[in-house]
Simulated assay, not measured.
Amino acid sequence: MELEYVNEHIGNKIKDLRNRNGLTQQELADRTELTKGFISQLERGQVSPSIVTLLDLIECLGTTASEFFKETEEEHVVFSEEGFFEKVDEAGNSIQWIVPTAQKYQMEPLLVVVQPHQSLEEDKPHDGEEFGYLISGRLKLYLGEEVYSVKAGESFYYPAKRKHHIENPDIIPAKFIWVSTPPTF
C-alpha cells in the first residue's frame, strides 16, 4: 500500500470519528496536546502520525486500535443481472441465482424457468423451508405423495422434510421466484 493512500485513509477515519464525536479540530488538538494545524494536515493525509500519537488520537476519539483499523465490508443491497449466475439444464430449464452471494446468508432467492412439459430434478428431504411465487405459467408441486397445482399469481410454502420436485404441465414456460432457507442449491 502506498504511504499517501495510508495517510489519506487514516486522515479520513480520524476526521470521520472527530465529526461523529462533535469535536472541532481545535478541541481534538487540545485533548491530544497537538496543534490544530497538525490535526488539519493529518485529516488531509499530508502527514503521518507516530504510532504513539495515532493511538492517543484513537483513544481520545473513543475507540480502540482494533476497531479503528477494522475494515468494514460495504453492504451490497441491490443486485443487477450482470452479477447473476445461471445454470441451464439439457431440457432448457434455467435457474438464476439473483443474489450472487446468497450462500453466506440465511436464504437463497432464485429465478427459475421451467420449459413446457419439463420438470426440475427431484430434491431429497433436507432441513429448511422453501417458498415460491409463480410469475407466469402453471406448475405442479410434488411434495411427498401430494400434488399441488399452482397458477400465476399464487405462491407456495413448505418445510423441505419430504422429497419434492416441480414440473410444468403447460405449453408455455413457467417462471417463478424460489427462495430456500437455508441455502441448498
Rank of each mutant, 00 (worst) to 15 (best):
E2W: 11
L3R: 06
Y5V: 12
Y5I: 09
V6N: 00
H9F: 15
I10T: 14
G11N: 02
N12C: 11
K13C: 06
K13D: 13
I14P: 07
K15Q: 03
K15E: 14
D16G: 05
L17C: 04
R18M: 01
R18E: 12
N19M: 10
N19S: 14
R20D: 12
R20P: 09
R20Q: 11
N21W: 05
L23E: 14
T24K: 02
T24W: 10
Q25W: 07
Q25Y: 13
Q26P: 08
E27N: 15
E27S: 14
E27W: 15
L28V: 00
D30Y: 01
R31Q: 04
R31I: 08
R31Y: 04
T32S: 01
E33G: 06
T35R: 06
T35D: 11
T35E: 15
K36T: 13
K36N: 12
K36S: 06
F38R: 13
I39S: 04
L42P: 00
E43F: 01
R44D: 00
Q46S: 15
Q46L: 12
V47D: 10
S48R: 04
P49L: 00
I51H: 09
I51C: 08
V52Y: 10
V52D: 15
T53L: 06
I58R: 09
I58M: 05
E59P: 07
C60E: 04
L61Y: 08
G62Q: 08
G62W: 03
G62C: 01
T63C: 12
K70F: 07
E71S: 15
E73N: 08
V78E: 10
F79T: 00
E82Q: 13
E82K: 11
E82D: 14
F84T: 04
F84M: 01
F85E: 14
E86Y: 00
V88K: 07
A91F: 07
S94G: 14
S94R: 03
I95H: 03
Q96S: 03
W97E: 15
I98V: 07
P100I: 13
A102Y: 09
K104C: 14
M107F: 04
P109A: 07
L110P: 09
L111F: 11
V112I: 07
V114Q: 02
V114H: 05
Q115T: 04
Q115L: 03
Q118T: 10
L120Y: 05
E121Q: 01
E121G: 05
K124C: 04
G128H: 00
G128Y: 05
E129W: 05
F131P: 15
L134S: 11
I135G: 05
R138G: 06
L139R: 07
L143N: 10
L143V: 08
G144F: 03
E146L: 00
E146M: 03
Y148S: 15
Y148I: 07
S149Y: 14
S149G: 11
S149P: 15
S149A: 15
V150D: 10
K151G: 00
E154N: 13
E154A: 05
S155M: 01
F156I: 00
Y157A: 07
Y157T: 13
Y158Q: 12
P159G: 09
A160P: 02
H164P: 03
I166A: 11
P169F: 00
I171K: 12
A174N: 12
A174E: 05
A174P: 06
K175A: 07
K175M: 14
I177W: 08
I177V: 09
W178E: 08
V179Y: 04
V179F: 14
V179T: 10
P183G: 08
F185I: 02
F185P: 09
